[in-house]
């Protein structure tokens, strides 16, 4: 995988009168007495690639899953392009069509072929015809480099291929933002590159992305902004070079040292 030194995602900053793609305001989430998110504020602008780092249990995945309401926040506000999201079903469906998601465990549908997986959103959510939805699915599969596997069951593919199909599936409804929840964590090291390359090419095409990951090289070279979450709050955020090379907080320094140690 070629080294890219210039961040591919666009920088943040918003022309007047425009909305952020996603705004989180004072987001809290508790499970019983356990408060996982303790007030998260985050804006994601069009074309940004935001990488979210943090130790396990820090709340980073919970935060990501709040963005498309797979977890219902205890309090706080979520806006997608200025529109406040609540848990009324119609509102929820509208939100989720705008926000695609890629999961750690792929979560492809084993009862469908590769092509049907990618066509499922357009077909069953948007009511597109079978022919149209599959034509679109085919384009997307080509885009993620999965060719000639249309009629194969996803379980027959390698983990890396499955995750690329899952990325194509997430793109099928033409979302404004794609969320990635540790997309390479379930993969063998030699299969991570192909998924990261696919993500990198999405970023270079201007896709707005929020990525929870431990892939430091992706954070360094692709992110337009890096966010470090610990204990349910955003501890540090900013330019990848700044956050990763000159961490201000002791907690982030400790986290980065540990990652480096583990990656060696």
């Amino acid at each position: 995988m070629p080294e890219v030194t210039v961040p591919l995602g666009r920088k943040s900053g918003l022309p007047a009168g425009e909305h952020y793609e996603i705004e989180l305001r004072d987001l809290h989430k508790s499970y019983g007495d356990n408060e996982v998110l303790k007030g998260i504020d985050l804006d994601i602008a069009l074309g940004e690639v935001v990488v979210i780092l943090g130790p396990s249990g820090s709340g980073k995945s919970t935060m990501l899953r709040c963005i498309n309401m797979l977890e219902t926040p205890t309090s706080g506000e979520i806006r997608v392009r200025g529109q406040v999201v609540d848990s009324r079903p119609a509102n929820l469906m509208a939100l989720r069509r705008e926000v695609g998601m890629v999961f750690q465990q792929f979560n492809l549908f084993p009862n469908m072929t590769v092509l049907e997986n990618v066509a499922a959103g357009p077909r069953y959510v948007r009511g597109m015809s079978r022919a149209d939805s599959e034509a679109r699915a085919q384009q997307l599969l080509t885009r993620v480099g999965i060719v000639g596997k249309d009629d194969v069951r996803p379980t027959r593919l390698s983990g890396g291929q499955q995750q690329r199909v899952a990325i194509a599936r997430a793109l099928a409804l033409e979302p404004r933002v794609v969320l990635f929840d540790e997309p390479t964590s379930a993969l063998d090291p030699e299969l991570r590159g192909e998924v990261l390359d696919t993500m990198k090419s999405l970023a270079s095409q201007g896709t707005t992305m929020a990525v929870v990951t431990h892939e430091m090289s992706f954070a360094r070279h692709v992110a337009s902004r890096v966010i470090f979450i610990d204990g349910g709050v955003i501890v540090e955020e900013g330019d990848p070079a700044q956050v990763l090379e000159r961490p201000k907080s002791a907690r982030l320094r400790q986290f980065l040292n540990k990652l480096e140690w583990e990656n060696d």
Binding site: F109, N111, L173
Partner: peptide, 24 residues
């Protein structure tokens, strides 16, 4: 995860049940 993937793409629960969960 099958429910989550269905919901995340904006499927109604009834659609997810019919297209994803019940066939499996």
């Amino acid at each position: 995860g099958q429910w989550e993937a269905s919901r995340a793409m904006g499927m109604k629960d009834s659609t997810a049940l019919r297209r994803v969960i019940l066939p499996q």
